[in-house]
Amino acid sequence: MRYLYYVFVFLVVLSGCNDKNPDPKFQPTDILLGVKPKYTIDKVFDLINESGVDVEYIEYSWYRSSFPADSLEHVLNYLNSKSYAHHPDWPVIGYLHFQTNIIHVNPTRLFQMNDTKNQVDWLESMKAMKLVEVTDNPFSKMLYLHVPKGREKEWVEKFQQMEIVEWAQLNYYREISR
């Protein structure tokens, strides 16, 4: 919910900006990509490996664990022990659903996911912690990618043609003037 609040505030601030440049600026080499919610992380790894682009991080995946309710701390400790899944500002978080007593976890961001060893380890960790990815939520997984400088628009168009991709865009920025 907090994520949606930040997106809303960002959009409000952005809508108040008066951009006199008809061709907005974007961060060179950066692309933001949304993967349709129905596609699981293994398909995201396939996309990464097939495209050969550099991935800064993957964001917004939720999982349910079939471990007993009293295992939440164990599951979080196990997943936070993974260097690619834990960053001081972005730990794996989770909660016990108050009605169902089902463990829900969110690796806030997965880093270093170009490394196929990390991909395999994450898939094995999912099995070890009995995690099933939630695919019935309205939010897409977001990937922050790096592509060759000067070819950003070409890559956005390429990604927009893929069935797995919900949206792809340049990493636009605007100067805010007073």
Rank of each mutant, 00 (worst) to 15 (best):
W122R: 03
K36S: 02
F98N: 11
T29D: 13
K25N: 13
D115K: 14
T135E: 13
H87V: 07
E133Y: 08
Y39F: 15
D121G: 05
T135F: 08
R174K: 15
I176H: 01
Y6L: 12
K158C: 11
K141H: 10
L123D: 00
Y78P: 04
I31C: 09
L72D: 08
T100A: 10
H86P: 00
M1W: 07
N49T: 08
D19G: 07
Y144T: 06
P28R: 11
K36A: 05
G52L: 02
F8W: 13
Y60C: 14
I176K: 09
L14W: 15
Y3C: 04
G52Q: 04
K127V: 08
M113L: 14
Q112F: 02
V35Y: 04
L72H: 04
R2H: 13
L4K: 07
D42R: 10
D42H: 15
K117P: 00
C17Y: 09
L96G: 05
Y6D: 07
T29Q: 12
W122Y: 14
Y144N: 07
P148G: 12
E133I: 02
I31M: 08
S66C: 03
V12H: 02
N18R: 11
Y144M: 09
V75N: 00
Y95R: 12
V75F: 12
P138T: 02
K82M: 10
I164T: 03
Y60I: 10
N171W: 06
E163N: 07
H146N: 11
V134H: 07
W155C: 07
Y173F: 12
V55K: 05
L79Y: 05
Y6A: 03
P68I: 00
R178E: 13
V132R: 06
I93N: 10
E56G: 06
H87R: 03
F26W: 15
E157Y: 01
N118S: 03
F8L: 12
P138S: 08
P28T: 14
S177Y: 15
G52W: 08
L4W: 05
P107V: 13
H97R: 06
P88A: 07
I48Q: 09
I48W: 01
Q99S: 13
N171P: 00
Y60V: 12
S125G: 06
T116R: 01
N77R: 00
V120P: 00
E163V: 04
S71W: 03
P28E: 02
E157T: 13
P107G: 11
D54L: 07
S83N: 09
S61F: 04
S61E: 14
K158W: 14
Y39E: 01
Y3R: 13
Q112L: 00
N77C: 07
L14Y: 14
Y84L: 13
Y63D: 01
P107I: 12
N18V: 10
P107R: 04
M129I: 09
S15F: 14
V134A: 02
